[in-house]
Amino acid sequence: MHPVLRLVAQRFALGLLLLWAASALIFAGTQILPGDVAQSILGQSATPQSLANLREELGLNDPAMTRYFNWLWGALQGDLGTALTNGKDIADSMGYRLKNTLFLASCAAIVSVPLAIFLGLLAVRYQGRWPDKMISGVTLASISVPEFLIGYILIYFVAVKLGWFTSVAMIDDRMTFLQSLNAIALPVIVLTLVVLAHMMRMTRAAILNVMQSAYIETAELKGLNSFKVIYRHAFPNAIAPIVNVVMLNLAYLVVGVVVVEVVFVYPGMGQYLVDHVAKRDVPVVQACGLVFAAVYIGLNMIADIVSILANPRLRHPK
């Protein structure tokens, strides 16, 4: 077996193992929460008899192990159970939310990743001079301001004063693609500003690190101009650290957008999770946790695999 294939398979297996461990943690975590689901559903109207009935119905009397494996088995088949609060199928209602979140996240990624890498390259090209300092200054300032504040500032100026975009990012299935894009423009801008600095700084640092190498001098002595030196010779050797930070930020775009979704009233996963945490709807919280864990682990696994593939020593052994 080719060593790269073996390494990739290894990463994949480790990812699955990690996901399984995460599922156990999520389940255990929700079990040790104080309070009783049946109690919270019935609230004021609870009688001892109705509580006992509901517990029986929800399977709360089974041992934790049995419930965990039933839940895991269901999740594997795409059955995440039903929400306690409204009795709807979780997979159905979450599917719609997840689609929205992924739509927002991918739009933000499509804008922010190339922009961050381009700005990183630019900062290296003009290292220590004013473009470098300006890029660093602006991106660091934007990451330092809390995202809800940026959100409200944008709403006030861009949506209210200028009227370019809507302040509420409500989207639904009847909207055309362009209408949807218009609706999410502001949250995309906010998310971009939030993740830009981290990716840009890492790109800059990774490439500057490579720029110390002797082969960069070789490239300069070939008479290549600075940009060619950077993107032909430095960038390919800086891919691994860059991909890692990009994936971390993509994961953040999916699992960390709660605040932005709430600010813009966007019907995504974050809002869905927050709503149901407030209502103590344990099955929904578990399901969201599992999906978030899967996204996080999946993206980081991709980063690992890309790093392996980017290494010519592994790709082309002696």
Binding site: Y215, T218, E220, G223
Partner: peptide, 24 residues
């Protein structure tokens, strides 16, 4: 200078192992 570097005059470095780009 860029026009003549790598064209009219070229350079052989001490450590070729470090002077070649490992990714190409």
């Amino acid at each position: 200078l860029r026009k003549l570097r790598g064209a009219e005059v070229t350079y052989v470095a001490q450590s070729a192992a470090a002077a070649f780009n490992p990714a190409k």
